[in-house]
Nucleic acid binder design. Structure first.
Length: 424
RNA sequence: GGAGGGAUGGCCGAGUGGACUAAGGCGGUUGUCUUGAAAACAACUGUGGGCAUACGCUCACCGGGGGUUCGAAUCCCUCUCCCUCCGCCA
């Protein structure tokens, strides 16, 4: 949610923002917002004056002794109330329309986010390591997995249809090892581990910026107000809803493992092979609440933490900065981290690290005080995957495969693999 | 799932239609006193919105939403959450 006051005072900044996001249709919505805002303030001026008058007169009536005069006043008040009711109704309508419009405006990109027309304009910042070379033809994970009994696609489909799979034996264990290792790494990096609800209420999903825009990409319960989380970012954003954090509480570093549920309403044939894109996947997420002036640095720190995860796994990765057309709805600036998967021959996006500014904090109403008695301010929030599991699993399997079809378990994961060094 | 009891400010807690401008206490901030501290005393101490250059004025908020009334923390409806008991369950 953008600050209405910002829209009022700097409408051109906001219009420029939606243009560079390649969403020019929103420009007219900014003008609509400005008109509604003016209308709202005019209405408030009138109705609040009437209410002030009503409050005074009501007290007067309470003190009046003369029955006839009292009745006359009451009758007069009834007429005033009709006017107040009518105005209140108009205010409510304007408020609702204003809220709907504000809800669909995306965040303003950071000035350092490069302008671009699409994902082809994302900027490659660096590549760490060389794509691994093999003296044999490396297999894609969809062949390695079933061959070693790690992935069972048929039974996944039997249970839940397309884009579902079963991990079994050392495959399931390897994923669990990755999750446990990542969480422990993040704890060492200073994050507090959280175990969160995997279903959350509408207002929480709204607060993170997924509603109303991404409604179609989410699973929700038909009877209760529950949404299956598409990422731990949603419940983490909601943790401090309606709270004013005490001085000294920031920064807060959280990490959490959750499954993620996404409807993925994309072309039926795209990315169906393997476990790259499913309706359910696991992810370890990092999240930071900090003071506004700290968020630039926090973004770099979080990016380093995500990179560290790739590096310690011995994976070749590259870092991209997303352009204005490709950053998410809530984001101001985003780095994507991609790892090289030699079997399927692709760079796989395993992490997306974003500075959201105060956009989510406004939506979810989380504030903080710099010192006792100071005015509450909105903190900045950042989120980053550390990392998405199926794609990390793909990269590990494909990079650590050997000529005989076995897979070496990366050093750092062995404590969670019961000492298994090679999966055969 | 059933029955009953609750939800008031940072915290505790009073408040069953008009002085609620929410009592009182605790906590907090500032001041007086003190060499300093404690104690005592005094003042201040919520959030959001509108108006105003400003001192400030004003509206809304007593779990959420709706209603009754000239007037609601208080009465009515409804939802949510918490507590107690029963049932069921991992």
């Amino acid at each position: 949610m953008l600050d209405l006051n910002l829209i009022r005072t700097q409408p051109d900044t906001v219009k420029h923002a939606v243009r560079v996001r390649q969403d020019p249709a929103l420009v007219t919505k900014v003008d609509e917002i400005l008109a509604l805002d003016q209308q709202r303030r005019d209405l408030l001026k009138e109705v609040e004056a009437l209410k002030a008058e009503r409050n005074l007169v009501s007290k007067e009536i309470g003190r009046m002794k003369d029955a006839a005069a009292r009745e006359a006043k009451i009758a007069e008040q009834r007429r005033v109330n009709e006017r107040i009711d009518a105005l209140d109704k108009q205010v409510a309508e304007v408020d609702a329309r204003l809220f709907d419009l504000l809800s669909v405006l995306p965040n303003i990109p950071d000035p350092r986010t490069p302008e671009g027309a699409g994902e082809e304009d994302n900027v490659l910042l660096k590549t760490v390591g060389e794509p691994k070379t093999f003296d044999f033809i490396p297999l894609p994970h969809w062949e390695l997995g079933p061959r070693l009994g790690l992935i069972d696609f048929e039974r996944g489909t039997k249970l839940s249809g397309s884009r579902f799979y079963v991990l079994q034996g050392a495959g399931a264990r390897l994923q669990r090892a990755l999750i446990a290792w990542m969480l422990d790494l993040h704890i060492r990096q200073g994050y507090t581990e959280m175990y969160l609800p995997f279903m959350v209420k509408s207002d929480i999903v709204f607060g993170a910026g997924q509603l109303p825009k991404f409604r179609d990409n989410l699973y929700h319960d038909a009877e209760e107000d529950f949404w299956m989380v598409p990422t731990a970012e949603i419940p983490l954003t909601g943790l401090h809803k309606d709270e004013i954090l005490e001085p000294g509480a920031l920064p807060k570093y959280y990490c959490a493992y959750t499954p993620c549920f996404r409807r993925e309403k994309i072309a039926a044939g795209r990315d169906v092979r393997g476990i790259k894109r499913g309706h359910q996947f696991d992810k370890v997420e990092m999240y930071i609440f900090c003071r506004p002036e700290e968020s630039d640095e926090a973004l770099e720190t979080m990016r380093e933490h995500a990179e560290e995860t790739c590096a310690q796994l011995g994976l070749t990765y590259r870092v991209k900065q997303l352009c204005t057309a490709d950053i998410g709805f809530s984001a101001r600036m985003t780095y994507d981290i991609e790892v090289w998967a030699p079997g399927c021959g692709e760079w796989l996006e395993v992490s997306s690290v974003s500075n959201v500014g105060d956009f989510q904090a406004r939506r979810i109403n989380t504030r903080f005080r710099r010192e006792a008695g100071a005015k509450p301010e909105f903190p900045h929030t950042l989120n980053g995957s550390g990392l998405g599991l199926p794609r990390t699993l793909i990269a590990v399997m494909e990079n650590y495969q050997q000529k005989d079809g076995s897979i070496v378990v990366p050093e750092v994961l062995r404590p969670w693999m019961g000492g298994i060094e090679v999966i055969r």
